[in-house]
């Protein structure tokens, strides 16, 4: 399968590229929307600040290209910040509008839960869907904000960090998002990527 990894200058693109190639797919980096229609599956990675990421996507017109592709049925997987960008709005450093492919907000961990932020390290994600049940287990997380989908049924995995939060989403097996890094989560992460990238 031809997989387009959206490269907007934020995050460890090399790891996800290696992971995709390792699974015998062909990964290409997309820095502009020109050839976006040639790919079967898009991956939106990312580490960093939400607003900076959005302004980089807006600069190249990648934002509209992604939205159009997904509205026309193309599959997409957002990883970490990439998952958050799929949502309508983030409250990181003020309010920023996201791609709006998923209804809901991105919010900070409440300081009252008194756990260390960023939430960094291995934590358990539990599948809410039978088809993914065997992939429940420990994944590698690094983040300070989390996604709050408006519709509960889009939640694919739940993780506990002071509260139970949505650590992965699945909309009609077309739009996927994972808050953790499957490309850093050893064999379990690779198995999850394998299951999603079809």
């Amino acid at each position: 399968m031809k997989i387009g990894i959206i490269d907007y200058g934020m995050g460890n693109i090399k790891s996800i590229t290696n992971a995709v190639n390792h699974l015998n797919h062909t990964a290409s980096l997309l820095t502009n929307p020109d050839s976006i229609n040639d790919y079967d599956f898009l991956i939106l990675p990312g580490v960093g600040a939400f607003s900076e990421a959005m302004s980089k996507l807006n600069e190249t017109g990648m934002n509209h290209a992604i939205i159009d592709c997904v509205k026309n049925g193309k599959k997409i997987l957002g990883i970490c910040l990439g998952m958050q960008l799929l949502f309508a709005k983030s409250y990181e450093f003020g309010e920023t509008t996201g791609l709006g492919l998923v209804e809901g907000d991105v919010v900070p961990f409440d300081k009252e839960i008194a756990l260390k932020v960023p939430h960094m390290g291995w934590n358990e994600a539990i599948a809410t869907d039978n088809y993914f049940k065997d992939l429940s287990g420990d994944y590698y997380f690094v983040h300070s904000y989390y996604c709050l989908p408006k519709k509960k049924e889009v939640t694919l995995f739940l993780t506990n960090y002071g509260i139970n939060f949505c650590s992965a989403i699945n909309l009609n097996s077309q739009i996927y998002g994972v808050q953790f890094h499957p490309e850093k989560s050893q064999h379990l992460g690779m198995n999850l990527l394998k299951r999603i990238l079809v």
Binding site: K14, S15, N18, A19, H22, K184, S185, Q186
Partner: peptide, 8 residues
């Protein structure tokens, strides 16, 4: 290492 190992 990064081609073979999918971990931090």
């Amino acid at each position: 290492v990064s081609q073979e190992c999918f971990m931090p």
